[in-house]
Amino acid sequence: MLDNLQLLFVYAPVMNIQMILDGIFVGAVFALSAYGLALVWGVMNVKNLAQGDFVIMGGYVAFSLYKLGIHPVIAIPIVAVCMFMFGWIVYIMIIRRVIDNDMFVSLLATFGLSLLLQQVMNLIYGPEVQTIDSHFPIFTMFDDFVTIPVVKIVSLALAMIFALAVVIFMKKSRMGQAIRATAQDARAARVLGINTDNVYAFTYSLNASICGVAGVLVSMIWVLQPFYGIVYSLRTFAIVTAAGLGNLPAVIGMSFALGWVEQYAGIIAGAEWQVASAVFMLLGVLMWRQIQLRRQRQVVR
């Protein structure tokens, strides 16, 4: 551990640039799925624990298309549409029945959905780690200390473009307005003639679609495995609880922060601690929130 710290800060401080860049590249993926979760949580009050499995599923759809000879960058719109339809089906079959219930029911239902998706993906694709080779060149800088695969830059750009498209959609389009209205006051929206059931279905499907796109980026820059989804769920929860709902700049900032924390934990304590560090960050954030809330909590003495 001390050796790694020495390496990082004394012998080759230029490696920090690599860490920071990698943190930004993976953070962009986290930001997409976290934005989807914030959307669903804010609009429908459904805590979607299947978030990470949607990400992995989108990646596997792209993987199947890649096997058919379609480049992942071209596959992004196809995956978005596929995941949109899948999200709609999931909404009709599961989420609609739990949406009015106790909030814990939605958590349990989506947890069950997540386990189901994991097993189905395991049956179809097997437990091996998969990745997509997108044939982009790799740059090196600073005497080969910093390597920047072009695919990561491309994925960052794609994430930015997609996020921008979603934000513009939410601001400008009729459906986006309806979603925002429903988030503010579902009952009033219903009174004013918005079909909230449709809005909920659309929101959930949009979330699935955003996750799917994030999954394509994961499959390009990282690896896919059927059981990695739950870790993405925890990461998105950590980001959203830290950033708050409907606060896009904070979501992006927290995503990059989480990316950096994971990168540094990975290099300092060992690769296995990457996931654990994300979980500890989640716990830390939750504790911090609770301490904040405790200040405001009032007890009759």
Partner: peptide, 27 residues
């Protein structure tokens, strides 16, 4: 640590603890 959390946060926090425990046991 975890009894400071309430509601869904407790559920997600404990799920996180379980996954972290698995990861750490693997190291």
């Amino acid at each position: 640590v975890v009894f400071g959390l309430r509601g869904p946060y407790f559920a997600i926090g404990t799920l996180g603890v379980a996954i972290a425990a698995g990861q750490i046991a693997g190291t």
